[in-house]
């Protein structure tokens, strides 16, 4: 009973506290760099698309608003043939960013996603792709991955040994 009264008193004390909210849009709030807003696709430090179309973001998306199709270039590098996010369904939960193994998909502090026509909220790859590396500057998936797609010579990755000579039986 006493705690209820205390609660009432504590809440009442907030009468004199300055509001946390601001009068958006006249006054813009500060959004941290890791704020979860509009989704972008970034590039690796070499300027190539980071997205390898592995489909993990689509699989983890709780509202199923990401659809993509993988394609392969002649060197075997995977990329997205199309990459579509339906922002009219997106709940900006950030799970896609957490799932992304290559830091390709990132959420940005841009939250102003308003359209009069819902169709305009369907973003294709060309709308999503930015030219920078986003929040993670140095990571290039193909320098670590075992697959050789022309980014590095085989066996010269960050934790790789020289290719084995399979004709040798020496220990």
């Amino acid at each position: 009973m006493l705690s209820q009264l205390r609660t009432i008193w504590e809440v009442f004390k907030h009468s004199t506290v300055k509001p946390d909210t601001v009068s958006y849009p006249e006054e813009k709030p500060y959004l941290a760099p890791r704020y979860r807003g509009r989704i972008v696709l970034t590039r690796d430090p070499d300027g190539e698309e980071r997205c390898v179309a592995c489909n993990l973001c689509a699989a983890v998306c709780p509202v199923d608003c990401i659809a993509l199709q993988q394609t392969q270039d002649e060197r075997g590098r995977w990329r997205a043939e199309f990459f579509r996010i339906n922002f009219s369904r997106c709940i900006l939960c950030g799970l896609c960013e957490e799932a992304c193994p290559t830091y390709a998909i990132q959420l940005t502090p841009d939250v102003e996603l308003c359209e009069y026509d819902r169709q305009n909220l369907v973003y294709e790859k060309e709308h999503l792709l930015i030219s920078g590396t986003g929040k993670y500057h140095d990571y290039n998936f193909y320098r670590r991955a075992g697959k050789d797609v022309g980014v590095k010579e085989r066996g010269t990755g960050e934790t790789e040994a020289e290719p084995v000579n399979v004709r040798s039986l020496l220990p």
Partner: peptide
């Protein structure tokens, strides 16, 4: 059961 992209697969044609 984890089929993905239901709300985006056809969104390029019609968002509905």
């Amino acid at each position: 059961h984890r089929n993905s992209g239901r709300t985006a697969a056809g969104a390029n044609l019609d968002v509905r």
